[in-house]
């Protein structure tokens, strides 16, 4: 059974139909990479999954739960879905450790010690155990993003969403974040990754989706699409970025 499904999803902001007709399915363990030009609606797709944005039409299911079902609470969705943002969005008035323990304590109800242990494990996993007591302002962009990944993982979600996680980083630094993402993929974490990093999509992705103008133009196996794109728009986009 698919972990995430979207069927004919529509979303409009003001005059703009950002999502016109989106249908996709992500199976457990898949690394689904979404690529496409700016404004194609990629980030909005992610936000429809954890209800940061409410859809106007169509159906989204997460682990069997219908997102548009009012009986499904925000918190049910967000415990299953973790999100990493382009601009990190770490909480500046808390240390790295506190950033990671906040949600486990307040939403999952863990005790302080349990939460701290979990957080230290995750910070070690992303290579930042020694920075537990530092504040975001003292960390580099790559370090902040890795803390953000640890923070999302602390909720032990079933799916991790990455919204252009490396776009705001200097090119030399993207490597450290992509490295963490590769490890997660190797551990069979279900991931949906909106990205411009074609190398990552090609080598780590198991499922590629090309979006343009609010619709899915082409999807399939990454290497196949990169080498033999079928649709005109896909060819045009790839010729510009590769």
């Amino acid at each position: 059974m698919a972990m995430i499904t979207m069927e004919h999803v529509r979303k409009r902001f003001g005059e703009n139909d950002v999502l016109k007709d989106i249908s996709l399915a992500v199976d457990p363990g898949e690394v689904c990479c979404i690529i496409g030009p700016s404004g194609s609606g990629k980030s909005t797709v992610l936000r429809c999954i954890n209800r940061l944005v409410a859809i106007d039409g169509g159906e989204v299911t997460v682990d069997g739960l219908r997102v548009s079902d009012p009986k499904v609470k925000d918190v049910d969705l967000r415990r299953r879905v973790g999100m990493v943002f382009q601009h990190f969005n770490l909480f500046p008035h808390m240390t790295a450790l506190q950033n990671v323990t906040l949600a486990p304590r307040k939403v999952r109800g863990l005790g302080q010690k349990e939460a701290d242990d979990l957080a230290l494990r995750l910070l070690a996993k992303v290579g930042l155990a020694e920075k537990a007591q530092t504040y975001p302002a003292q960390l580099s962009g790559g370090q902040q993003q890795r803390v953000a990944i640890a923070r999302a993982l602390a909720m032990e979600p079933k799916v991790m969403l990455f919204d252009e996680a490396t776009s705001a980083l200097d090119p030399e630094i993207t490597g450290e974040v992509l490295g963490v993402m590769r490890e997660l993929a190797a551990e069979r974490t279900t991931m949906i990754v909106v990205t411009h990093e074609m190398g990552f999509a090609r080598e780590v992705g198991t499922h590629l989706i090309f979006m343009d103008g609010g619709v899915v133009v082409e999807e399939g196996e990454p290497r196949a699409i990169f080498e033999r794109p079928q649709a005109e728009r896909t060819k045009a986009f790839l010729s510009k970025v590769l």
Partner: peptide
Amino acid sequence: APGQVEAASALGLS
């Protein structure tokens, strides 16, 4: 910054 509220929301905070 609105990103703060987004991140907090995404973590499931009420």
